[in-house]
């Protein structure tokens, strides 16, 4: 397995990712103030997904994993996405 080969990731990368996360948090707050109605939910979920992806990709080292592993991760992500979309067929059309 790959985990033993150490990837020396530059501290700089981590700091950049961290700053990006902070900015995205700021964006979430901004989005909440913009009174977008139904779309504020979309904005929130989109921003949260980007943040989660950054964490997974860099902090949790997904970037350095094998292809199969990345592919397998897609199964739950796609499933949960479809589930969320389906729920909105109720909430938006009620």
């Amino acid at each position: 397995m790959e985990e033993n080969t150490s990837h020396h990731v530059a501290t700089r990368t981590f700091v950049f990712v961290w700053i990006a996360l902070l900015c995205l948090t700021g964006l979430t707050i901004k989005a909440a103030q913009m009174q977008m109605g139904e779309w504020s939910m979309v904005a929130n979920i989109a921003i949260a997904s980007v943040k989660a992806s950054l964490v997974l990709w860099f902090f949790m080292h997904l970037k350095y994993e094998k292809r199969l592993f990345k592919l397998l991760l897609f199964v739950p992500i796609i499933t949960i996405s479809i589930i969320i979309v389906l729920t909105f067929f109720d909430i938006w059309y009620r």
């Binding site: 389906l86 909430i91 009620r94």
Partner: peptide
């Protein structure tokens, strides 16, 4: 993808 069929009379939207 089919869980909603337990909720047909719950007051969920018609589209759903």
């Amino acid at each position: 993808l089919v869980w909603g069929h337990h909720m047909f009379t719950s007051g969920m939207s018609d589209t759903a």
